[in-house]
Amino acid sequence: MVSAPAASSRASGQAPLLGIGQVLARLQPEFPELTPSKLRFLEEQRLVAPARTAAGYRKFSVSDVERITVVLSMQRDHYLPLKVIRTHLEAIDAGETPALPGATSAAAFLAGARRFRRDELIRQAGATASLLDDAVSASLLPAAEYYGDDALGVLRSLVALRAVGIEPRHLRGVRAAAEREAALVERAIAPSRRADAADKARALEQGQELARHLDAVHASVVRASLGRLAR
């Protein structure tokens, strides 16, 4: 027996509510890291509020699934912490139109996170197929069927760098440095990564926060190094 929200959904002709397994079947092809525990963790963090059956089972609406997609896309493509995502989604729920860090509109995510096929990514970035291939070879971008806004930003930057003679192969050191920094973060959060999936999700959240701090330090060091040109 389902709760009132689920029953009213059927009676009104709306799309039927989905169980956790059905939500995973829809979203795991794009977000393979999504697990039942991660869904429960997102609920715990007040990012989604599924209905419940009389027996206590979670039931997700189409809008719940869209919201989960938004949250996971923000995490993956923009490395935003869940508390930032929650604040912005709450502002959207309140009728506001806030901008996320990086001047990305949160409303745009609610309309659906942008996904690009390979040819669309190349066209949107003003790039060439060979540049994308070179970026993949240099491990600056993954070999994927679909790409997000983060990949679009990277490829646009590579277009600008190629214009002054800086090729993806010249940036292999960037990848190596990033992997060293990732190893630092992994060691830092290792004590928090227990067997429980919710603990792993919390550790990932902490790791993304540490990554943002590393980005700030890296940008400052680069700016300081470039400052020597003005001397």
Results as ranks from 00 to 15, higher is better:
Met1Asn: 01
Ser9Val: 11
Ala15Val: 09
Ala15Lys: 13
Ala15Met: 10
Pro16Cys: 07
Pro16Ser: 09
Pro16Phe: 01
Leu17Cys: 02
Leu18Lys: 13
Gly19Ser: 09
Gly19Ile: 00
Ile20Lys: 04
Gly21Lys: 05
Val23Ala: 03
Val23Arg: 03
Leu24Thr: 00
Leu24Asp: 07
Leu24Cys: 06
Phe31Gly: 05
Phe31Ser: 04
Glu33Asp: 07
Pro36Asn: 06
Pro36Thr: 04
Ser37Ala: 15
Lys38Tyr: 00
Leu39Gln: 02
Leu39Cys: 04
Glu43Asp: 10
Gln45Asn: 04
Arg46Glu: 08
Val48Asp: 04
Ala49Met: 05
Ala51Pro: 10
Gly56His: 05
Arg58Ser: 10
Lys59Val: 01
Phe60Gly: 01
Phe60Arg: 01
Asp64Gly: 08
Val65Arg: 02
Val65Met: 00
Val71Ala: 06
Val71Thr: 08
Val71Gly: 03
Leu72Thr: 10
Leu72Arg: 13
Asp77Phe: 14
Asp77Gly: 12
Tyr79Gly: 07
Pro81Asp: 00
Ile85Arg: 03
Thr87Gln: 14
Glu90Ser: 13
Gly95Pro: 03
Glu96Ile: 00
Leu100His: 11
Pro101Gly: 10
Pro101Ile: 12
Ala103His: 14
Ala103Ile: 08
Ser105Lys: 09
Ser105Gly: 13
Arg118Gln: 12
Asp119Tyr: 00
Leu121Asn: 01
Leu121Trp: 06
Gln124Ser: 14
Gln124Met: 13
Ala127Ser: 15
Ala127Thr: 10
Thr128Cys: 04
Thr128Gly: 07
Ser130Gln: 15
Ser130Cys: 01
Leu131Thr: 06
Leu132Tyr: 00
Leu132Ile: 02
Asp133Cys: 01
Asp133Ile: 07
Ala138Pro: 10
Leu140Asn: 10
Leu140Asp: 09
Leu140His: 10
Leu141Tyr: 09
Ala144Ser: 13
Tyr146Thr: 01
Gly148Glu: 02
Asp150His: 12
Gly153Ile: 04
Leu155Thr: 08
Arg156Val: 02
Arg156Tyr: 04
Arg162Asn: 11
Ala163Val: 01
Val164Trp: 11
Val164Asp: 00
Glu167Phe: 13
Glu167Arg: 15
Leu171Ser: 09
Val174Ile: 08
Arg175Leu: 09
Ala178Ser: 13
Glu179Ile: 14
Arg180Met: 12
Glu181Arg: 05
Ala182Cys: 00
Ala183Val: 07
Leu184Val: 15
Leu184Thr: 11
Glu186Ile: 05
Ile189Glu: 02
Ile189Val: 15
Ile189Thr: 11
Pro191Ala: 06
Ser192Trp: 05
Arg194Lys: 13
Ala201Glu: 03
Ala201His: 08
Glu205Asp: 15
Ala211Ile: 05
Arg212Ser: 02
Arg212Ile: 02
Ala216Gly: 07
His218Phe: 09
His218Asn: 09
Ala219Gln: 14
Val221Cys: 05
Val222Asn: 09
Val222Leu: 15
Ser225Ala: 13
Leu226Gln: 07
Leu226Met: 05
Gly227Ser: 11
Leu229Trp: 14
Leu229Pro: 05
Ala230Gln: 08
Arg231Asp: 10
